[in-house]
């Protein structure tokens, strides 16, 4: 029996599992990624786009699957699992680059002055002991004065002057000062503003608009910054009208309830005497000031008459 015919028909039905291209496909099984760097065949692209794309996709998937089946496998309940190698293609990072650490005050100063950073050795040479000792910490050089067994006392010192305590206090003060500066650097790095400065700026801003012209015709000082107002924010124009309708109906009902509240409270104190009207009537429409002047003059006349 000749099976070559059947084999030939079979091979015709199924395409080969090896993909051959001018430039071989780049396969990155770690990311399940295939990139085809071949130029597009213009003829087949123009004649039948769909078929062209399908054949491209088929070649790519074929190459990917071929590479997957060549990977080492691992047994599992669901069948063999291929172990993917680490990806080789570099993918752009998802997150933005981390921001540089905020400079401390000293670092800012050093940068402005061009002072190079120098690492200090942790240990220093002790002439007396002829040995390297710690700059600080256990048996540190900075504790030498307070730990030596005999200390010189200056001639003009007080009776209760304790040179060891004085040296220790000085060292502790340096530590607390450094801690304070560190905390200040941290808060500055977090963008904390000086509350006093903010207060001054607020006062300045309010004083600048506190003239009759709201500061429009004030003399400008040199280097004076333009005042920043509050930035208004509006709803987008192309919002859905349903939402807009809902908000305006809500506003209407709120206005309605406000009006009802006023009505329930009633007009403020219905008095028998309407002062405004009474004054208008008594002064014959000339106002309360005129009425007051007139009555004062009238009194004067009357006293004259009595005399």
């Amino acid at each position: 029996m000749d099976v070559s015919n059947i084999l030939a028909s079979n091979t015709a039905k199924y395409q080969s599992i090896t993909v051959e291209k001018e430039t071989p496909l780049e396969v990155d099984p770690g990311l399940l990624l295939v990139s085809d760097l071949n130029p597009i065949d213009e003829e087949s692209y123009a004649s039948n786009l769909e078929e062209h794309l399908q054949s491209l996709a088929r070649d790519g998937v074929q190459a990917l699957l071929g590479s997957l089946f060549s990977l080492p496998t691992q047994r599992s309940d669901e069948g063999p699992l291929a172990q993917l190698p680490p990806p080789t293609t570099a993918i752009p990072r998802a997150k933005p680059l981390p921001k540089p650490k905020p400079l401390t005050k000293w670092e800012q100063f050093a940068k402005a002055k061009g002072i190079q950073h120098r690492t200090r050795d942790k240990r220093v040479w002790d002439e007396e002991r002829q040995d390297w000792v710690n700059r600080w910490g256990r048996d540190g050089k900075n504790k030498q004065v307070e730990e030596q067994w005999i200390t010189e006392v200056p001639a003009n010192a007080d009776v209760d002057f304790d040179p060891r305590k004085a040296a220790r206090d000085e060292r502790k003060a340096r530590v607390t000062k450094n801690e304070k500066q560190r905390l200040a650097n941290v808060s500055r790095g977090q963008g904390a503003t000086n509350p006093r400065k903010a207060e001054i700026e607020k006062t300045l801003a309010s004083s600048r608009i506190s003239t009759a012209s709201m500061g429009k015709f004030d003399k400008k000082l040199e280097g004076e910054k333009k005042m920043r107002g509050v930035k208004r924010k509006f709803e987008p124009t192309e919002k859905s009208l349903e939402a807009e309708k809902a908000t305006s109906l809500a506003l209407l009902s709120r206005m309605d309830s406000d009006a009802k509240k006023v009505r329930r409270e009633g007009p403020k104190e219905e008095k028998v005497l309407n002062e405004r009207k009474a004054v208008r009537f008594a002064s014959k429409g000339r106002g309360g000031v005129a009425l007051g002047r007139e009555t004062a003059r009238g009194k004067g006349k009357r006293t004259k008459g009595k005399r």
């Binding site: 208004r232 509006f234 709803e235 987008p236 124009t237 919002k239 807009e244 305006s248 506003l251 206005m255």
Partner: peptide, 11 residues
């Protein structure tokens, strides 16, 4: 062109 703010709609 923009929608009215709350205060404007009230007015």
């Amino acid at each position: 062109m923009r929608p009215l703010t709350d205060d404007e709609s009230r007015a």
